[in-house]
Design a protein around this nucleic acid. Structure first.
Lengths: 214, 214
DNA sequence: TTTAATAACTGAACAGCATTCATTTCAAGT
DNA sequence: ACTTGAAATGAATGCTGTTCAGTTATTAAA
Protein backbone atom coordinates (compact mmCIF):
# COMPACT_ATOMS: atom_id res chain seq x y z
CA UNK A 1 0.00 0.00 0.00
CA UNK A 2 2.78 2.45 0.80
CA UNK A 3 5.57 2.17 -1.74
CA UNK A 4 6.79 5.72 -0.95
CA UNK A 5 7.16 7.12 2.52
CA UNK A 6 9.49 9.98 1.63
CA UNK A 7 8.15 13.50 1.60
CA UNK A 8 7.35 15.23 -1.64
CA UNK A 9 9.38 18.44 -1.76
CA UNK A 10 9.97 19.28 -5.41
CA UNK A 11 7.18 19.95 -7.87
CA UNK A 12 7.96 16.68 -9.60
CA UNK A 13 7.68 14.69 -6.42
CA UNK A 14 4.45 16.42 -5.58
CA UNK A 15 2.81 15.67 -8.88
CA UNK A 16 4.07 12.10 -8.55
CA UNK A 17 2.40 11.84 -5.15
CA UNK A 18 -0.73 13.36 -6.62
CA UNK A 19 -0.74 10.70 -9.30
CA UNK A 20 -0.21 8.02 -6.66
CA UNK A 21 -3.37 9.22 -4.96
CA UNK A 22 -5.25 9.18 -8.24
CA UNK A 23 -4.05 5.65 -8.95
CA UNK A 24 -5.23 4.54 -5.52
CA UNK A 25 -8.55 6.29 -6.14
CA UNK A 26 -8.90 4.52 -9.46
CA UNK A 27 -8.25 1.13 -7.87
CA UNK A 28 -10.62 1.87 -4.99
CA UNK A 29 -13.32 2.98 -7.40
CA UNK A 30 -13.00 -0.32 -9.20
CA UNK A 31 -13.49 -2.19 -5.94
CA UNK A 32 -16.29 -0.29 -4.23
CA UNK A 33 -17.81 1.93 -6.93
CA UNK A 34 -18.93 5.50 -6.60
CA UNK A 35 -21.29 4.97 -3.68
CA UNK A 36 -18.89 2.95 -1.57
CA UNK A 37 -16.08 5.44 -2.11
CA UNK A 38 -14.90 7.41 0.92
CA UNK A 39 -12.01 9.72 1.70
CA UNK A 40 -11.01 7.54 4.64
CA UNK A 41 -10.77 4.46 2.41
CA UNK A 42 -8.88 6.38 -0.23
CA UNK A 43 -6.35 7.68 2.27
CA UNK A 44 -5.76 4.22 3.65
CA UNK A 45 -5.42 2.78 0.15
CA UNK A 46 -2.94 5.50 -0.79
CA UNK A 47 -0.94 4.91 2.37
CA UNK A 48 -1.47 8.40 3.76
CA UNK A 49 -3.86 10.00 6.21
CA UNK A 50 -6.92 12.04 5.34
CA UNK A 51 -5.29 15.35 6.14
CA UNK A 52 -2.58 14.79 3.56
CA UNK A 53 -5.18 14.22 0.87
CA UNK A 54 -6.36 17.77 1.32
CA UNK A 55 -2.92 19.10 0.50
CA UNK A 56 -3.39 17.68 -2.99
CA UNK A 57 -7.12 18.04 -3.58
CA UNK A 58 -9.39 20.71 -2.17
CA UNK A 59 -12.42 18.41 -2.05
CA UNK A 60 -13.39 14.81 -2.59
CA UNK A 61 -15.09 15.83 -5.83
CA UNK A 62 -11.87 17.31 -7.18
CA UNK A 63 -10.42 13.82 -6.96
CA UNK A 64 -13.30 12.54 -9.06
CA UNK A 65 -12.94 15.38 -11.52
CA UNK A 66 -9.23 14.68 -11.99
CA UNK A 67 -10.06 11.01 -12.39
CA UNK A 68 -12.68 11.91 -14.97
CA UNK A 69 -10.28 14.07 -16.96
CA UNK A 70 -7.78 11.25 -17.11
CA UNK A 71 -10.39 8.69 -18.05
CA UNK A 72 -11.70 10.89 -20.85
CA UNK A 73 -8.23 11.30 -22.28
CA UNK A 74 -7.51 7.59 -21.93
CA UNK A 75 -10.70 6.59 -23.68
CA UNK A 76 -10.36 9.18 -26.41
CA UNK A 77 -6.81 8.04 -27.09
CA UNK A 78 -7.81 4.40 -27.26
CA UNK A 79 -10.81 5.06 -29.48
CA UNK A 80 -8.87 7.17 -31.97
CA UNK A 81 -6.08 4.64 -32.02
CA UNK A 82 -8.46 1.82 -32.89
CA UNK A 83 -10.19 3.75 -35.67
CA UNK A 84 -9.40 2.29 -39.09
CA UNK A 85 -9.18 4.49 -42.17
CA UNK A 86 -12.79 4.04 -43.04
CA UNK A 87 -15.78 2.56 -41.26
CA UNK A 88 -19.48 2.01 -41.69
CA UNK A 89 -21.68 4.12 -39.41
CA UNK A 90 -22.84 1.05 -37.53
CA UNK A 91 -19.34 -0.24 -36.84
CA UNK A 92 -18.25 3.24 -35.80
CA UNK A 93 -21.01 3.40 -33.21
CA UNK A 94 -20.22 -0.06 -31.94
CA UNK A 95 -16.55 0.76 -31.54
CA UNK A 96 -17.41 3.97 -29.73
CA UNK A 97 -19.74 2.12 -27.39
CA UNK A 98 -17.35 -0.72 -26.67
CA UNK A 99 -14.37 1.48 -25.94
CA UNK A 100 -16.34 3.96 -23.81
CA UNK A 101 -18.09 1.33 -21.72
CA UNK A 102 -14.93 -0.73 -21.67
CA UNK A 103 -13.15 1.93 -19.66
CA UNK A 104 -13.67 1.26 -15.97
CA UNK A 105 -14.04 4.93 -15.07
CA UNK A 106 -15.13 7.00 -18.03
CA UNK A 107 -18.83 6.20 -18.26
CA UNK A 108 -19.57 6.01 -14.51
CA UNK A 109 -17.91 9.37 -13.98
CA UNK A 110 -19.28 11.05 -17.09
CA UNK A 111 -22.78 10.02 -16.03
CA UNK A 112 -22.32 11.74 -12.66
CA UNK A 113 -20.29 14.69 -13.89
CA UNK A 114 -22.70 17.56 -14.20
CA UNK A 115 -25.25 16.64 -11.58
CA UNK A 116 -22.95 15.41 -8.84
CA UNK A 117 -19.22 15.90 -9.26
CA UNK A 118 -19.06 19.44 -10.61
CA UNK A 119 -21.20 20.68 -7.77
CA UNK A 120 -18.38 20.72 -5.21
CA UNK A 121 -15.36 21.80 -7.19
CA UNK A 122 -13.43 25.04 -7.46
CA UNK A 123 -13.92 27.20 -10.53
CA UNK A 124 -10.26 26.70 -11.45
CA UNK A 125 -10.59 22.94 -11.58
CA UNK A 126 -13.81 23.20 -13.48
CA UNK A 127 -12.32 25.42 -16.15
CA UNK A 128 -9.31 23.15 -16.49
CA UNK A 129 -11.62 20.20 -16.95
CA UNK A 130 -13.86 21.96 -19.44
CA UNK A 131 -10.90 23.03 -21.55
CA UNK A 132 -9.55 19.51 -21.56
CA UNK A 133 -12.99 18.29 -22.57
CA UNK A 134 -13.17 20.79 -25.41
CA UNK A 135 -9.76 19.69 -26.67
CA UNK A 136 -10.65 16.01 -26.61
CA UNK A 137 -13.93 16.64 -28.40
CA UNK A 138 -12.01 18.43 -31.12
CA UNK A 139 -9.51 15.58 -31.43
CA UNK A 140 -12.29 13.02 -31.60
CA UNK A 141 -14.15 15.04 -34.19
CA UNK A 142 -11.09 15.49 -36.37
CA UNK A 143 -10.33 11.77 -36.28
CA UNK A 144 -13.95 10.85 -36.96
CA UNK A 145 -14.43 13.23 -39.84
CA UNK A 146 -12.14 11.22 -42.11
CA UNK A 147 -13.50 7.86 -41.05
CA UNK A 148 -17.14 8.82 -41.51
CA UNK A 149 -16.50 11.05 -44.51
CA UNK A 150 -18.05 14.07 -42.85
CA UNK A 151 -17.08 17.71 -42.85
CA UNK A 152 -15.31 18.73 -39.65
CA UNK A 153 -18.28 20.75 -38.50
CA UNK A 154 -20.56 17.78 -38.98
CA UNK A 155 -18.19 15.45 -37.16
CA UNK A 156 -18.12 17.89 -34.25
CA UNK A 157 -21.87 17.77 -34.00
CA UNK A 158 -21.82 13.97 -34.15
CA UNK A 159 -19.28 13.66 -31.35
CA UNK A 160 -21.07 16.14 -29.12
CA UNK A 161 -24.39 14.41 -29.62
CA UNK A 162 -23.07 10.92 -29.12
CA UNK A 163 -21.54 12.10 -25.86
CA UNK A 164 -24.97 13.19 -24.73
CA UNK A 165 -26.39 9.84 -25.80
CA UNK A 166 -23.72 7.99 -23.80
CA UNK A 167 -24.83 9.80 -20.66
CA UNK A 168 -28.43 9.02 -21.43
CA UNK A 169 -27.95 5.29 -21.87
CA UNK A 170 -25.48 5.04 -18.99
CA UNK A 171 -28.35 4.87 -16.52
CA UNK A 172 -30.29 2.34 -18.53
CA UNK A 173 -28.54 -0.84 -17.48
CA UNK A 174 -29.50 -2.62 -14.29
CA UNK A 175 -27.65 -1.41 -11.24
CA UNK A 176 -25.14 -4.06 -10.18
CA UNK A 177 -26.55 -3.97 -6.67
CA UNK A 178 -29.69 -5.67 -7.94
CA UNK A 179 -27.93 -8.36 -9.92
CA UNK A 180 -28.55 -11.06 -7.34
CA UNK A 181 -32.05 -9.99 -6.35
CA UNK A 182 -35.28 -11.70 -7.19
CA UNK A 183 -36.80 -9.52 -9.86
CA UNK A 184 -40.25 -10.39 -11.21
CA UNK A 185 -40.73 -11.28 -14.85
CA UNK A 186 -42.45 -8.08 -15.94
CA UNK A 187 -39.83 -5.72 -14.50
CA UNK A 188 -37.01 -7.90 -15.77
CA UNK A 189 -38.52 -7.58 -19.22
CA UNK A 190 -38.78 -3.82 -18.88
CA UNK A 191 -35.16 -3.51 -17.90
CA UNK A 192 -34.07 -5.76 -20.73
CA UNK A 193 -35.86 -3.51 -23.22
CA UNK A 194 -33.72 -0.63 -21.96
CA UNK A 195 -30.41 -2.39 -22.41
CA UNK A 196 -27.93 0.34 -23.19
CA UNK A 197 -25.97 -1.16 -26.06
CA UNK A 198 -28.70 -1.59 -28.70
CA UNK A 199 -30.28 1.73 -27.79
CA UNK A 200 -26.99 3.51 -28.19
CA UNK A 201 -25.90 1.85 -31.38
CA UNK A 202 -29.22 2.14 -33.15
CA UNK A 203 -29.80 5.78 -32.32
CA UNK A 204 -26.21 6.85 -32.75
CA UNK A 205 -26.53 5.51 -36.27
CA UNK A 206 -29.72 7.48 -36.82
CA UNK A 207 -28.05 10.63 -35.55
CA UNK A 208 -25.05 10.24 -37.82
CA UNK A 209 -27.29 9.69 -40.79
CA UNK A 210 -29.34 12.69 -39.78
CA UNK A 211 -26.27 14.91 -39.61
CA UNK A 212 -25.00 13.59 -42.92
CA UNK A 213 -28.22 14.34 -44.75
CA UNK A 214 -28.58 17.90 -43.42
CA UNK B 1 -45.69 25.00 8.55
CA UNK B 2 -47.82 22.73 10.70
CA UNK B 3 -51.39 22.73 9.50
CA UNK B 4 -52.10 19.36 11.13
CA UNK B 5 -50.95 18.36 14.58
CA UNK B 6 -53.36 15.49 15.09
CA UNK B 7 -52.07 11.95 14.94
CA UNK B 8 -52.61 9.85 11.87
CA UNK B 9 -54.39 6.68 12.97
CA UNK B 10 -56.43 5.42 10.07
CA UNK B 11 -54.90 4.39 6.75
CA UNK B 12 -56.44 7.46 5.14
CA UNK B 13 -54.93 9.81 7.66
CA UNK B 14 -51.57 8.13 7.25
CA UNK B 15 -51.50 8.45 3.51
CA UNK B 16 -52.62 12.05 3.90
CA UNK B 17 -49.68 12.69 6.25
CA UNK B 18 -47.40 10.95 3.78
CA UNK B 19 -48.59 13.27 1.07
CA UNK B 20 -48.05 16.25 3.36
CA UNK B 21 -44.44 15.20 3.71
CA UNK B 22 -44.10 14.82 -0.05
CA UNK B 23 -45.59 18.27 -0.59
CA UNK B 24 -43.12 19.74 1.87
CA UNK B 25 -40.32 17.86 0.13
CA UNK B 26 -41.42 19.23 -3.21
CA UNK B 27 -41.45 22.79 -1.90
CA UNK B 28 -38.08 22.33 -0.21
CA UNK B 29 -36.58 20.89 -3.38
CA UNK B 30 -37.72 23.96 -5.25
CA UNK B 31 -35.97 26.19 -2.73
CA UNK B 32 -32.66 24.43 -2.14
CA UNK B 33 -32.34 21.87 -4.96
CA UNK B 34 -31.08 18.34 -4.71
CA UNK B 35 -27.73 19.16 -3.12
CA UNK B 36 -29.10 21.47 -0.45
CA UNK B 37 -31.80 19.01 0.52
CA UNK B 38 -31.56 17.42 3.96
CA UNK B 39 -33.78 15.29 6.15
CA UNK B 40 -33.55 17.82 8.95
CA UNK B 41 -34.78 20.63 6.70
CA UNK B 42 -37.53 18.45 5.32
CA UNK B 43 -38.76 17.51 8.79
CA UNK B 44 -38.82 21.11 9.89
CA UNK B 45 -40.62 22.15 6.71
CA UNK B 46 -43.18 19.40 7.20
CA UNK B 47 -43.69 20.40 10.82
CA UNK B 48 -42.55 17.09 12.26
CA UNK B 49 -39.30 15.71 13.64
CA UNK B 50 -36.84 13.55 11.82
CA UNK B 51 -37.88 10.37 13.60
CA UNK B 52 -41.43 10.70 12.34
CA UNK B 53 -40.23 10.89 8.76
CA UNK B 54 -38.85 7.39 9.09
CA UNK B 55 -42.29 6.05 9.95
CA UNK B 56 -43.36 7.03 6.44
CA UNK B 57 -40.19 6.52 4.39
CA UNK B 58 -37.46 4.01 5.00
CA UNK B 59 -34.73 6.22 3.59
CA UNK B 60 -34.17 9.70 2.28
CA UNK B 61 -33.96 8.28 -1.22
CA UNK B 62 -37.40 6.72 -0.92
CA UNK B 63 -38.73 10.25 -0.51
CA UNK B 64 -37.03 11.22 -3.75
CA UNK B 65 -38.30 8.11 -5.50
CA UNK B 66 -41.89 8.84 -4.46
CA UNK B 67 -41.39 12.42 -5.59
CA UNK B 68 -40.07 11.15 -8.90
CA UNK B 69 -43.03 8.84 -9.44
CA UNK B 70 -45.45 11.68 -8.86
CA UNK B 71 -43.53 14.05 -11.10
CA UNK B 72 -43.44 11.49 -13.89
CA UNK B 73 -47.20 11.02 -13.69
CA UNK B 74 -47.80 14.75 -13.51
CA UNK B 75 -45.65 15.48 -16.54
CA UNK B 76 -47.03 12.59 -18.55
CA UNK B 77 -50.58 13.72 -17.82
CA UNK B 78 -49.83 17.29 -18.82
CA UNK B 79 -48.01 16.29 -21.99
CA UNK B 80 -50.77 13.97 -23.18
CA UNK B 81 -53.38 16.53 -22.35
CA UNK B 82 -51.64 19.17 -24.45
CA UNK B 83 -51.19 16.89 -27.46
CA UNK B 84 -53.38 17.94 -30.39
CA UNK B 85 -54.80 15.39 -32.82
CA UNK B 86 -51.89 15.65 -35.15
CA UNK B 87 -48.48 17.25 -34.97
CA UNK B 88 -45.30 17.66 -36.98
CA UNK B 89 -42.31 15.79 -35.58
CA UNK B 90 -40.53 19.02 -34.73
CA UNK B 91 -43.47 20.47 -32.82
CA UNK B 92 -43.94 17.16 -31.01
CA UNK B 93 -40.34 17.24 -29.81
CA UNK B 94 -40.62 20.86 -28.74
CA UNK B 95 -43.76 20.18 -26.76
CA UNK B 96 -42.15 17.18 -25.10
CA UNK B 97 -39.10 19.24 -24.19
CA UNK B 98 -41.05 22.20 -22.87
CA UNK B 99 -43.38 20.17 -20.70
CA UNK B 100 -40.65 17.92 -19.32
CA UNK B 101 -38.24 20.73 -18.47
CA UNK B 102 -41.16 22.85 -17.34
CA UNK B 103 -41.88 20.50 -14.48
CA UNK B 104 -39.87 21.59 -11.45
CA UNK B 105 -39.07 18.04 -10.36
CA UNK B 106 -39.24 15.60 -13.25
CA UNK B 107 -36.01 16.30 -15.10
CA UNK B 108 -33.77 16.90 -12.06
CA UNK B 109 -34.97 13.67 -10.49
CA UNK B 110 -34.97 11.59 -13.67
CA UNK B 111 -31.39 12.67 -14.29
CA UNK B 112 -30.34 11.37 -10.87
CA UNK B 113 -32.62 8.35 -10.80
CA UNK B 114 -30.49 5.41 -11.75
CA UNK B 115 -27.10 6.56 -10.56
CA UNK B 116 -28.07 8.16 -7.27
CA UNK B 117 -31.61 7.72 -6.03
CA UNK B 118 -32.20 4.06 -6.76
CA UNK B 119 -29.05 3.18 -4.91
CA UNK B 120 -30.55 3.43 -1.43
CA UNK B 121 -34.08 2.19 -1.84
CA UNK B 122 -35.86 -1.02 -0.91
CA UNK B 123 -36.63 -3.53 -3.62
CA UNK B 124 -40.38 -3.06 -3.01
CA UNK B 125 -40.23 0.64 -3.68
CA UNK B 126 -38.09 0.09 -6.72
CA UNK B 127 -40.50 -2.40 -8.25
CA UNK B 128 -43.44 -0.10 -7.55
CA UNK B 129 -41.61 2.72 -9.27
CA UNK B 130 -40.57 0.62 -12.26
CA UNK B 131 -44.11 -0.62 -12.79
CA UNK B 132 -45.45 2.92 -12.65
CA UNK B 133 -42.78 3.92 -15.14
CA UNK B 134 -43.74 1.11 -17.47
CA UNK B 135 -47.39 2.12 -17.31
CA UNK B 136 -46.66 5.76 -18.06
CA UNK B 137 -44.41 4.86 -20.97
CA UNK B 138 -47.25 2.80 -22.40
CA UNK B 139 -49.72 5.65 -21.97
CA UNK B 140 -47.34 8.10 -23.58
CA UNK B 141 -46.66 5.76 -26.46
CA UNK B 142 -50.37 5.12 -27.08
CA UNK B 143 -51.09 8.84 -27.13
CA UNK B 144 -48.12 9.59 -29.36
CA UNK B 145 -48.83 6.86 -31.88
CA UNK B 146 -51.92 8.66 -33.22
CA UNK B 147 -50.33 12.08 -33.22
CA UNK B 148 -47.18 10.99 -35.03
CA UNK B 149 -48.95 8.43 -37.22
CA UNK B 150 -46.78 5.59 -36.01
CA UNK B 151 -47.55 2.00 -35.16
CA UNK B 152 -47.80 1.40 -31.43
CA UNK B 153 -44.56 -0.53 -31.39
CA UNK B 154 -42.78 2.31 -33.13
CA UNK B 155 -44.24 4.88 -30.77
CA UNK B 156 -43.02 2.81 -27.84
CA UNK B 157 -39.51 2.87 -29.21
CA UNK B 158 -39.72 6.62 -29.76
CA UNK B 159 -40.86 7.33 -26.21
CA UNK B 160 -38.24 5.09 -24.66
CA UNK B 161 -35.48 6.65 -26.70
CA UNK B 162 -36.56 10.23 -26.10
CA UNK B 163 -36.56 9.47 -22.38
CA UNK B 164 -32.94 8.44 -22.69
CA UNK B 165 -32.19 11.61 -24.63
CA UNK B 166 -33.83 13.73 -21.93
CA UNK B 167 -31.47 12.27 -19.35
CA UNK B 168 -28.53 12.88 -21.65
CA UNK B 169 -29.25 16.54 -22.28
CA UNK B 170 -30.30 17.19 -18.67
CA UNK B 171 -26.68 17.58 -17.67
CA UNK B 172 -25.81 19.80 -20.58
CA UNK B 173 -27.04 23.15 -19.29
CA UNK B 174 -24.87 25.25 -17.04
CA UNK B 175 -25.24 24.48 -13.37
CA UNK B 176 -27.13 27.30 -11.68
CA UNK B 177 -24.37 27.56 -9.09
CA UNK B 178 -22.10 29.01 -11.77
CA UNK B 179 -24.59 31.50 -13.12
CA UNK B 180 -23.02 34.46 -11.38
CA UNK B 181 -19.39 33.43 -11.80
CA UNK B 182 -16.86 34.93 -14.12
CA UNK B 183 -16.55 32.41 -16.91
CA UNK B 184 -14.00 33.02 -19.66
CA UNK B 185 -15.09 33.46 -23.25
CA UNK B 186 -13.92 30.11 -24.57
CA UNK B 187 -15.63 28.01 -21.91
CA UNK B 188 -18.79 30.10 -22.12
CA UNK B 189 -18.84 29.35 -25.82
CA UNK B 190 -18.36 25.65 -25.19
CA UNK B 191 -21.24 25.55 -22.74
CA UNK B 192 -23.48 27.47 -25.10
CA UNK B 193 -22.85 24.92 -27.82
CA UNK B 194 -24.19 22.26 -25.46
CA UNK B 195 -27.43 24.03 -24.69
CA UNK B 196 -29.95 21.29 -24.05
CA UNK B 197 -32.96 22.50 -25.97
CA UNK B 198 -31.61 22.56 -29.54
CA UNK B 199 -29.70 19.32 -28.99
CA UNK B 200 -32.79 17.58 -27.76
CA UNK B 201 -35.18 18.89 -30.38
CA UNK B 202 -32.89 18.32 -33.33
CA UNK B 203 -31.93 14.78 -32.39
CA UNK B 204 -35.34 13.74 -31.15
CA UNK B 205 -36.55 14.66 -34.62
CA UNK B 206 -33.84 12.56 -36.22
CA UNK B 207 -34.74 9.63 -34.02
CA UNK B 208 -38.43 9.81 -34.85
CA UNK B 209 -37.64 9.96 -38.52
CA UNK B 210 -35.28 7.04 -38.12
CA UNK B 211 -37.94 4.95 -36.42
CA UNK B 212 -40.51 5.89 -39.02
CA UNK B 213 -38.33 4.84 -41.92
CA UNK B 214 -37.34 1.47 -40.46
C1' DT C 1 28.62 18.81 12.34
C1' DT C 2 25.40 21.54 14.39
C1' DT C 3 21.69 24.72 13.83
C1' DA C 4 17.82 27.08 11.82
C1' DA C 5 14.10 27.46 8.58
C1' DT C 6 10.69 25.51 5.69
C1' DA C 7 6.68 23.15 4.51
C1' DA C 8 4.99 18.24 4.04
C1' DC C 9 2.60 15.63 6.94
C1' DT C 10 -0.19 14.12 10.81
C1' DG C 11 -4.22 12.98 13.63
C1' DA C 12 -7.37 14.62 16.69
C1' DA C 13 -11.32 17.38 16.59
C1' DC C 14 -15.44 19.31 14.26
C1' DA C 15 -19.77 20.05 12.17
C1' DG C 16 -23.13 17.94 9.55
C1' DC C 17 -25.31 13.99 7.82
C1' DA C 18 -28.90 9.98 7.64
C1' DT C 19 -30.70 6.66 10.54
C1' DT C 20 -32.23 4.21 14.97
C1' DC C 21 -34.81 3.28 19.12
C1' DA C 22 -36.19 3.56 24.03
C1' DT C 23 -39.42 6.49 25.76
C1' DT C 24 -43.45 9.47 25.81
C1' DT C 25 -47.95 10.86 24.37
C1' DC C 26 -52.25 10.65 22.46
C1' DA C 27 -56.73 8.75 20.84
C1' DA C 28 -59.82 5.00 20.41
C1' DG C 29 -62.10 0.83 22.60
C1' DT C 30 -63.63 -1.19 26.82
C1' DA D 1 -62.01 6.31 34.02
C1' DC D 2 -58.90 2.83 32.48
C1' DT D 3 -56.32 0.12 29.29
C1' DT D 4 -54.03 -0.54 25.12
C1' DG D 5 -51.52 0.04 20.94
C1' DA D 6 -49.53 2.67 17.86
C1' DA D 7 -47.95 7.46 16.40
C1' DA D 8 -44.70 10.71 17.59
C1' DT D 9 -40.60 12.13 19.76
C1' DG D 10 -35.72 13.59 20.32
C1' DA D 11 -31.57 12.14 22.13
C1' DA D 12 -28.04 9.17 20.71
C1' DT D 13 -25.23 6.68 17.08
C1' DG D 14 -21.99 6.10 13.70
C1' DC D 15 -20.67 7.82 9.61
C1' DT D 16 -19.22 11.52 6.51
C1' DG D 17 -15.94 15.23 4.47
C1' DT D 18 -13.14 18.89 6.04
C1' DT D 19 -9.98 21.72 9.05
C1' DC D 20 -5.89 23.09 11.59
C1' DA D 21 -2.58 23.48 15.40
C1' DG D 22 1.12 20.87 16.11
C1' DT D 23 4.94 17.51 14.64
C1' DT D 24 8.70 16.03 11.96
C1' DA D 25 11.50 15.20 7.84
C1' DT D 26 14.21 17.64 4.80
C1' DT D 27 17.16 21.16 2.98
C1' DA D 28 20.23 25.22 3.43
C1' DA D 29 23.17 27.92 6.20
C1' DA D 30 26.65 28.52 9.75
Amino acid sequence: MTPEKKRARSLEEKSFRRQQILDAASALFGEVGYEGFSVALLASKAGIVKGTLYLYFKTREEVFLALYDQSLNRWSEKFIQQLPESLEDRAFCELLYETAFGDPLYVPLQARLEKVIEHNVSLDCLLLSKRNFLQEVDRLAAASADVLRLRNEQALEVIKTLGVLIVGVAGADLAPSLKGEEIPEDVQHLLASFSSRPIFVKNAERIIQGVRSD
